[in-house]
Amino acid sequence: MNPFAFLANLGHKRTPLSDKQHRRLQRLPAPTPLDGRPLRKQRFVVLDLETSGLNLNRDIVLSIGAVLIEDGAIDFSRQFECTLQRQLKTVTESVLIHGIAPSALARGSEPAEALLAFMEFAGDCVFLAYHAPFDQRMLTRALKDELGYRLQHPFFDIADLAPMLFPEALMQRSGLDHWIDYFALNMPQRHHASADALATAEIALILFNRAQRMELNNVQQLGERLGHWRRSREASHRSI
Rank of each mutant, 00 (worst) to 15 (best):
N55W: 12
A101L: 14
V46A: 10
I158R: 02
I206L: 12
A142R: 00
V61E: 04
H228L: 12
P111H: 05
A132I: 04
P16C: 03
A211H: 07
T140E: 13
S194P: 05
R230E: 08
P154T: 09
A169I: 01
I158V: 15
A104Y: 03
F44N: 01
Q221L: 15
V61C: 12
F155T: 00
R86C: 15
T51P: 06
I206D: 04
G99T: 01
L62M: 15
T83G: 03
H192L: 11
R231M: 10
A8Y: 07
L54F: 11
A112V: 02
D145R: 14
A184S: 13
Q189F: 12
R78D: 12
L96M: 14
Q152H: 09
T51G: 08
E81Q: 10
R141W: 01
R107C: 13
E168L: 03
Q85F: 11
Y182R: 08
H22T: 09
H22A: 12
F44W: 11
R40A: 13
M138Q: 05
L216W: 09
F127T: 00
G175P: 03
A66I: 04
M164A: 07
S236H: 12
P31I: 03
E168C: 04
L147R: 00
D181L: 11
E146V: 00
A169G: 11
A193Q: 03
D19S: 11
Y182S: 01
E146P: 02
H22F: 11
S236L: 14
Q42C: 14
A159S: 15
R107M: 13
M214F: 11
A184C: 12
K20P: 00
Q87V: 11
D48S: 14
E50D: 08
W229D: 06
I60M: 13
N2T: 04
I240A: 10
P16L: 04
A204S: 15
L207S: 05
P188D: 04
A162Q: 05
F208S: 09
T140R: 08
G108I: 02
Q26H: 10
H191L: 03
Q189W: 10
L116P: 01
L161I: 08
H131Y: 15
G123V: 01
E224A: 13
F134N: 05
R43W: 07
Q189S: 11
A8L: 06
L198K: 11
A201W: 07
N9I: 06
N55I: 08
Y149R: 04
H12T: 06
M171T: 00
A193W: 03
M171C: 12
I203C: 07
R190T: 06
T83M: 10
A197D: 08
I240N: 10
A211L: 05
T15M: 12
S94E: 14
S94Q: 10
A101Y: 11
H191A: 03
L10E: 13
R230A: 05
S52V: 05
I60W: 12
P16G: 04
N55D: 15
F166M: 08
T83K: 06
Q87G: 11
F121D: 04
L165Q: 04
F183S: 00
N9A: 14
T200P: 09
H237N: 09
P133T: 07
H22E: 15
